[in-house]
Structure formats: structure tokens, C-alpha cells
Design a protein around this nucleic acid. Structure first.
Length: 200
DNA sequence: ACACCGATTATCT
DNA sequence: GATAATCGGTGTA
């Protein structure tokens, strides 16, 4: 079994999971195309107490219901009328934790990733954002709620990362969360040549 | 380098 | 009817 197993996803320390995901490989096999890359940037969303989380205050809607399920599944949502964002649901059932994947280093099926992104060359802007990597890997609302233990979208062991090579900083685009926008819930791989995003 | 802004629609209130 | 865990293009320097 190459897929990371349920025991990893159901832990309650979402920050630790978000940091541990750095260096692992996010893989998709969608439309007969095998694509993937090393996870280089993540953000933790810590459920009901985190003002930046879609589940803040126990908010439960058609969209966010998936966050309350047992960890190890995908939470994909559609934003700004044109972008898909991919999260890993974590913790046990009833605890709506999630980790947003914000950047990868393309590794598998790079030609398909370029094609999906309508680009010719491998450049930082290929996959250095949450909506960009979804487009490159073919992730859409179709993948919402699917198990990460299946053979369509999954995470597998990747490179061993030294903890000193991970930058911890503030999350992006969550100003509406007030004080919680300042929390150090974002993890970024140092020396990622595909990253151009600013570190706060 | 950085600031500004328009695109476009599922989902929520 | 309003909002949005973004992106890419344009403009100024």
C-alpha cells in the first residue's frame, strides 16, 4: 500500500499533520493521467475555534459538512467563481479540521500538468498556488469527499524533510479572520524553486 | 518590484 | 443579493 493510511489523518494535531505533509507526494490519477508532486506548502485550518476556518463556530452547511467526517478524505471547494481549492480532511469524525495544500513541486506527469495549465515551460507559476495545483492535477468538485486511500487522489511517502527546512508563517488571504489571521499555521518548504509567494 | 483590478459562479444568508 | 482560503494581466517605477 503506497497510500498514507488512515492513522495518519485521524490525529487531532492538525498543525503537526500540516507540517508532516511537507515533503510527501500528492498524486492524482484522473482521466487516465497520472500526475503528482512533492507537497511544498500547506496551511492548517483548526476547526471550530479557528476564525479562518469554514467550520468556525461549528458552522455546518452543505459545503462544509465533509470537514466533519473522519480524516483521510478530500475537501474540495470552488472559490471566486473559477478556482478549485484542495484540502485534506483530518481528525476523527465530528472534528472539522483540514489542511489546505497550497503548493507542490511537479514530479510525475509533468507534461499533463503543463497541458492542463496551458503552459509550455516548467516555471514557478505552474503550481505555486492552491488553485493552480488543482488545475495541474485535474482536481475539481468531482473529487470532493473522495477517500485519499483510493486510486484517484492520494498521498504517499515522499522525501524526508529536515524540520529546519520548513518555514512557519502566517496564512494567506484570511484577513477576515481578525486575530486568527496572524496565527503561524502556514508551512513552507525552504529552497522550493517553484515558490514565489511572500513569507509573512 | 509592487499595487490594483476584473473575471465568474457555487454557496451561503 | 453578497461573498469568496485566487489568479493573471496591466500599469507604474
Amino acid at each position: 500500500m503506497k497510500q498514507i493510511q488512515t492513522a495518519f489523518y485521524v490525529k487531532e494535531d492538525v498543525l503537526n499533520i500540516a507540517r508532516s505533509l511537507i515533503g510527501m507526494k500528492l498524486m492524482t490519477n484522473i482521466g487516465g493521467r497520472l500526475t503528482g508532486g512533492i507537497i511544498a506548502e500547506t496551511e492548517a485550518y483548526a476547526g471550530v475555534h479557528d476564525k479562518a476556518s469554514h467550520a468556525y463556530g461549528g458552522r455546518k452547511t452543505v459545503r462544509t459538512e465533509v470537514m466533519y467526517r473522519e480524516g483521510g478524505i478530500a475537501y474540495v471547494y470552488f472559490s471566486y467563481g473559477m478556482h478549485h481549492l484542495f484540502n485534506v480532511v483530518t481528525a476523527g469524525a465530528g472534528i472539522p479540521h483540514a489542511v489546505l495544500i497550497r503548493g507542490i513541486i511537479p514530479q510525475v506527469g509533468v507534461d499533463w500538468q503543463l497541458k492542463r495549465r496551458k503552459q509550455e515551460m516548467i516555471r514557478p507559476q505552474l503550481v505555486n498556488g492552491p488553485a493552480k495545483l488543482c488545475q495541474a492535477l485535474g482536481i475539481t468538485l468531482q473529487q470532493n469527499t473522495i477517500s485519499l486511500l483510493g486510486d484517484s487522489v492520494w498521498i504517499e511517502q515522499g522525501e524526508k524533510i529536515n524540520i529546519a527546512d520548513i518555514i512557519t508563517c502566517r496564512r494567506v488571504g484570511v484577513d477576515y479572520a481578525g486575530k486568527d489571521a496572524l496565527l503561524p499555521y502556514r508551512f513552507v518548504l525552504k529552497h522550493d524553486s517553484y515558490r514565489t509567494a511572500k513569507i509573512n
